[in-house]
Design a protein around this nucleic acid. Structure first.
Lengths: 205, 205
DNA sequence: GTCACATTACCGACTGGTAGTTCGGTGCGT
DNA sequence: ACGCACCGAACTACCAGTCGGTAATGTGAC
């Protein structure tokens, strides 16, 4: 298990060794890809040796697995908090969409790694990640369906297709967003939420 | 350059060797990823040897480069044909969005390969692909801007953000679309076009 | 307080294997 | 007889993971 103590030799640079390894690995994986990044590179950048890495992680795959676990857990909890909260379905949808955009932008490297590397993981790990992602998808879809019953979302669109439509935009963020660009995360979140909700909303006469 | 003759030893299976190599490589890259697919696997599946591959392609990267070139060329030509055609901006936008969805679904493997492998190519090749993609983005964005001048698209949204929003959904198709699923490509194209256009359209009173 | 002992944290040379690329060779078509 | 298309063993490089070792830290007896 990963210790959270700050004592020990690893504290030299501030953060505990496992956290440093994950942070460095995320950065390198996002920049050059999982397969193009050697374990040696990671441990060099983290200022430790292979022995340290294999002391805390069982394999290179295990690094990614942990990166995924943290990211997906974070976002799922966030969605469920909003989705199960107060307000109309339309309100909660708007809040959830803007929130997931901002949250994705705040952890952009993790998202990029997930996008680019999920397909080359061992099948059982992939299945695990897919299951978590599916849970997320289902919760969002249910919110859209609730909007339809509520009368605020058009009845003639497929909630599944709408969900895919929106998550496409979210997953795509890593491809084009630059932190030094013109748009701030909040603006992007609100802009995408506005377009998405407007796209599925019933027209007000 | 790639020959188009059908004579020679390579014609045994019908298609010329370079085409067979590209087709097989696309399938394998999409299924298991670029780095997890060895050159040996590709040439075995194509029924030739390494010598043949390195006779037609300068490297393994060159295979991907050619896959990208074909796909992007195809889609760019298609978009420009529609965008420069007749009709209002709104009509052309609808036609273009539905078309690119159907076309992406028809070449799903190529798209998946592009999504998963672009980031690990040599920088100058990546720059080349990005440039082509940018050209595509610009043409689409111009169409949205034209819609704003025409009065059919809301003036308060960023055409760039709208373009990213839509292409997110397109790029995401490879993640969830199953050819044996409930929705046909045409339905998906029209559904996404409907949501997208509705999302950016001015409300009719 | 300190000594002995156990456990944790980390080191880094080494192994076994795989992968992309090269290149001298072969045979068919013209 | 020339060259294009293709062959495939050999080459070089690298890489994930191992393992025997060492230093630091924690623990309990006295």
């Amino acid at each position: 298990m990963v210790t959270t103590r700050t004592s020990g030799r690893g504290a030299a640079d501030g953060a505990p060794v496992p956290d440093r390894l994950l942070a460095v690995a995320t950065r390198l994986f996002a920049a050059q890809g999982f397969e193009r990044t050697s374990v040696q590179e990671i441990v060099d950048a983290a200022g430790v040796t292979k022995g340290a890495m294999y002391h805390y992680f069982s394999s290179k795959d295990d690094l990614i697995r942990e990166i995924y676990r943290r990211l997906l857990g974070l976002q799922t909890r966030s969605l469920e908090r909003i989705a199960d909260g107060p307000g109309t379905a339309a309100q909660r949808l708007r809040e959830a969409t803007a929130d997931v955009v901002v949250s994705t932008l705040a952890h952009l490297d993790d998202g990029v790694v997930l996008m680019h590397s999920l397909h080359l993981l061992a099948p059982h790990i992939r299945a695990q990640v897919r299951a978590e992602r599916r849970r997320y998808h289902e919760r969002f879809r249910a919110l859209v369906a609730e909007g339809q019953r509520e009368g605020s979302v058009r009845a003639d669109i497929s909630p599944d297709l709408a969900t895919h439509h929106f998550f496409g935009a979210v997953h795509h963020l890593g491809t084009w967003y630059r932190s030094d660009g013109a748009l701030r995360p909040r603006q992007i979140g609100e802009g995408l939420a506005e377009m998405f909700l407007n796209g599925i909303a019933v027209q007000r006469p």
